[in-house]
Amino acid sequence: MVHFTCDLCGKDLCAEAPRYVVKIAAYPGFDPDQITDEDLEDDHMEAVAEVLRNEQYEGAEPSQEEGYRGFRYDLCPSCHQKFLKDPLGKDLIRSFDLSDFSNN
C-alpha cells in the first residue's frame, strides 16, 4: 500500500482523505522577438519526433541541461488552500521584515 504525507505540514494522508497534487515546472522562457524568418521556414516536426522518442526511453522529464526542472508535491486539504491563496509564498517572505533585526 502506498503511503502519502503532506509535503508541507507532514500530516499523514490516509486513503479516505482528499490529497492534492501540485506540479510545478520551471524552464527558460523565450522572447518571441528573437524568432527569425529562418526559424519559421524550418520544419521542426522531425526534431519534435526525436524528442518524443528520447523521452519515451529516458523518462518523461527533459534533461536538467536544458534548464528544465520539475517539482511534485502532495498536500493535505488545509495546505492546499494555503497554497492556492499564496502559491509563491510572497506573504511569508513579507512577514519576515529583516529591518527589525538590523538594530542587533
Rank of each mutant, 00 (worst) to 15 (best):
V21L: 15
I93S: 09
T5G: 06
C76V: 06
A15I: 07
N103E: 15
E55L: 15
K23T: 14
M1D: 11
Y73D: 02
Q81M: 12
L92R: 12
L52D: 12
D39W: 01
L40P: 00
D12E: 13
F30M: 12
C9F: 01
P32N: 03
S102N: 10
E65F: 10
L98I: 14
A25F: 04
E46G: 08
Y27V: 08
N54S: 13
N103I: 08
D31F: 02
G10I: 00
G89M: 08
A26E: 15
F71G: 05
F30W: 09
D7F: 01
G59V: 01
R19K: 15
D42W: 07
G59C: 04
D31R: 07
V51R: 12
C76L: 07
C9W: 02
R69P: 00
L84T: 06
C76F: 03
Q34C: 10
E58R: 14
G89H: 06
M45T: 15
H80G: 00
P77F: 02
K82Y: 08
D86P: 02
E58P: 00
A17K: 13
E58V: 01
A25Q: 11
D86M: 07
Q81V: 12
G59L: 09
E66D: 11
H80D: 04
D100I: 10
F83G: 07
D74W: 02
H80N: 08
A25Y: 04
H44V: 13
Q64D: 13
L13M: 03
Q64G: 09
D91C: 05
K11H: 07
E41S: 13
C9N: 03
L52I: 09
A26T: 10
C14H: 11
D91V: 06
K11C: 07
V51M: 15
S78Q: 14
D39F: 03
E16D: 13
A49L: 10
E66K: 03
D42I: 08
S95V: 00
L75G: 05
C79D: 08
K11S: 12
K85W: 03
N54D: 15
Q81R: 15
L75C: 05
S78W: 00
V22G: 04
V51C: 08
P87Y: 02
V51H: 07
